[in-house]
Each structure stands twice: as C-alpha cells, then as structure tokens.
Computed example of a mutant assay.
Amino acid sequence: MPETATHKERTRQRILDEAAAIMRVVGTEGIGVAALMKRAGLTHGGFYAHFKSRDDLVANVVDRMFIETRASLQSQISDGSEAEKLSLFIDIYLSDEARKAPEHSCPMPSLASEACRLPEVARARFNQGIQTMQGIVATSLQALGHKDPQALASSVQAEMIGAMALARAMTDEAQARQALQASRSQLKRRLGLDRETAHG
C-alpha cells in the first residue's frame, strides 16, 4: 500500500512538472489534458486519478511554480550580507539565463497578463505567490533601513516582472541582454545596493 501511494505521488509530480514547463512558456491555454498526459507518458484517462478537473490541475501547477521558484532563489542567495543577497536576487531574477529559460524561471513575467483570466482558485494562489515573493524583497529592504519597504518592494517587483517580460519579447538578442543589464544596474542604484556592496 505505501509503495502504491509513493508511485501515485511520483506520477502526480511528473504531471505537474510537465504542466508547469508548458504553462510557463505558453500559458494556461497551452495545457490540453490529452497532450499533457501523452507528454508525461501516461494515458488520458489516468489524469482523473490525480486531479478533479483541468482547473484543479492549473491551481496546483501555480502553487508548484511559485514553490520551486522561491526554493531555487533562496538556495542561491543564502550567504552574504543583506545587501549582497538582495543584489544577487536581482541578478538571478533578471539574468539572461532566466530570459532564455522561462520553463525553469519565475512564472510571473510569463503569466501576469493572463492571471486575471485564471480559474478562481488558481488566481487566488497566483496572488498568494505574488505576495510571498514581494514579502521576501520587503524583508530585505526593511533590514537595509528603507522607508515603507512594502511599497518599495511592490515597485521593485513590478519593475523586475516588466523588465523580464519585455526582454523576452525583444527579437534582438543584444538589445534584450542590454535591457536586462540596464534594469539590474538601475534597480541596484535606486536601492543603494551599488554603494552597500561596494563597501561590504
């Protein structure tokens, strides 16, 4: 019995992994149950052993994407001063690697424009993901002594999401790289991170 449960959980995770990769790149409309299950090497009918509906799948995928993104970012910025960690957070989030690999990156630049059309539960979870990520930035800003860290974090988050979305839309590789570099540089200057890390 435990082995059966473990196998079922592994299968569920495989479906979520495939769906998350698709959703980050082409949005929720790109997730067709039949094609998804085929991609995961499973039968169409097996889908309902793991999810009540397509909307249930989408809500779970949203959760998974934010959990993965948060864990990945935090694992890469665990060391250093608060200024160094926030600076590295910006560098990783707005990296050219993230631009080229939306299937492995934060879902917000890819999905923010369609979040308002997500199923109700998925939209609520997407909103929770936004607030959680914003809270991470706000905590750093508060530790660095910034006034009204929550409002500033909201502005920083919006700029990062917008910068990445625009960079991915650009057809010229050099321009896309330059746009991300400019955003990284200006954000750090605005937050005083260029001074903090230089004196660290």
Rank of each mutant, 00 (worst) to 15 (best):
A71M: 08
A122Q: 03
A21E: 07
R24W: 01
Y48W: 13
C106Q: 04
K147L: 14
A40H: 06
I90A: 00
R177A: 14
G162V: 05
A21M: 07
C106N: 13
E82K: 10
D91Q: 05
A71D: 13
R12E: 07
F126D: 04
A163R: 03
A21P: 00
A169G: 15
A165S: 14
T43F: 00
L187P: 00
E103H: 10
H44W: 06
L144P: 00
E196G: 02
T28V: 14
A124G: 10
R184F: 01
D172R: 06
S75C: 03
A115C: 08
A167W: 00
M133Y: 09
K188A: 12
E196H: 11
I67W: 04
V137D: 01
E3K: 11
D17H: 09
R70H: 11
P107I: 11
R190C: 08
S140I: 03
K8W: 06
A158R: 10
A176N: 01
L144W: 02
A153C: 07
A151L: 08
I22A: 05
E29D: 15
K8P: 05
G162D: 07
A49F: 07
G30I: 05
R123N: 10
F47S: 03
D63L: 08
E9P: 01
Q13F: 10
I161V: 15
V137L: 11
P102D: 09
V26G: 14
T139N: 08
D91I: 05
S78P: 04
L88I: 01
E68K: 07
T6N: 06
A35P: 04
R117E: 10
D55Q: 08
Q150E: 15
S78E: 12
R125L: 12
E173V: 12
T69C: 11
E9Y: 09
M1D: 15
E159Y: 03
A71Y: 00
G80V: 06
A151M: 09
D172Y: 04
A182K: 06
S87M: 03
R10V: 13
L118G: 05
M108C: 09
C106M: 11
L57T: 04
